[in-house]
């Protein structure tokens, strides 16, 4: 049944730190690699060596610019995969029950055996988190690496999504949002983690940490720190140095 569980025991998901993501696409490719070899059908590529190569990816990194009037523009790299919404419209629209949200941890999955490839769930997802695999004809989406996070064949430290494990900048965090003490809950609270398109009421589990304020030194109204000269010409400065040095007691470090 494609109805959503009224609540889930855990709320597993990701925190993505937009202040730290350098846009390297490591998460994109490691996701592709893991999910090609694991859960369900491989993520196929059409015209891989030709014109317009187009493949299935479960995670993609956009680049945006944000510019406030009169300030310098900022670049924000923006990774996006399934947000494992609590109120996932992609699940309820599915005619076959292939799409479902797991009761135990809230992961939204597609059971590929049941999927007829109608695409409606992708239509229902506001975020573009679902892609219909052109080779296999089934819907693909981020599995939150359900075949890693509980995988007893992996060492404990590695039971984390492939994209999180690989992110060189440490901009991706995985954890249980139902637990207020989890790393993800804390980061969300401390850094003002936000929802994407909250107006749609999808209640995404994944949270985005906004970039910290930038370019404070461009704001000329703020009195910038400023160094007081000790001397304006060479002689004076050399004299000053001489004084400083002669004040130095034998082996202590000076504070200048």
């Amino acid at each position: 049944m494609t109805s959503l569980p009224t609540s889930t025991e855990k709320k597993l998901g990701l925190v993505i730190d937009l202040d730290t993501c350098v846009g390297c696409h490591a998460c994109v490719i490691s996701c592709k690699g893991w999910n090609t070899e694991n859960y369900g059908a491989p993520l196929s590529d059409q015209r891989p060596y030709g014109e317009e190569p187009m493949g299935t990816f479960l995670n993609r990194v956009h680049s945006y610019e944000v510019q406030a009037e009169g300030q310098s523009a900022q670049t924000v790299h923006f990774p996006k995969s399934c947000l494992h919404c609590e109120n996932a419209p992609c699940v309820t629209v599915c005619p076959t029950g292939a799409s479902y949200k797991r009761a135990e941890d809230g992961i939204v999955l597609v059971n590929e055996q049941d999927c007829i490839g109608c695409g409606l769930c992708a239509w229902a997802c506001p975020y573009g988190a679902r892609e219909l695999d052109q080779e296999e004809g089934v819907m693909k989406k981020c599995t939150l690496c359900v075949d890693r996070i509980y995988n007893e064949n992996l060492p404990e430290v590695d039971r984390t999504p492939a994209c999180v494990r690989t992110c060189p900048a440490g901009a991706r965090h995985f954890g249980d949002f139902a637990d207020p003490d989890s790393n993800v809950s804390k980061l969300t609270a401390e850094r003002g983690g936000m929802d994407l398109m909250p107006e749609l009421g999808t209640a995404p589990v994944n949270k985005y940490l906004p970039p910290r304020p930038k370019d404070s030194w461009d704001d000329e109204s703020i009195l910038a720190p400023f160094l007081e000269p000790v001397a304006d010409e060479a002689k004076g400065l050399l004299g000053w140095i001489d004084k400083q040095l002669s004040r130095l007691p034998g082996d202590s470090k000076e504070e200048v």
Binding site: M1, T2, S3, T92, V93, C94, P95, T96, G97, A98, D114, I116, C118, L120
Partner: peptide, 11 residues
């Protein structure tokens, strides 16, 4: 299989 989810799915 598409006939199974009439309780939630318009399709």
């Amino acid at each position: 299989k598409a006939f199974t989810q009439w309780r939630t799915s318009w399709l």
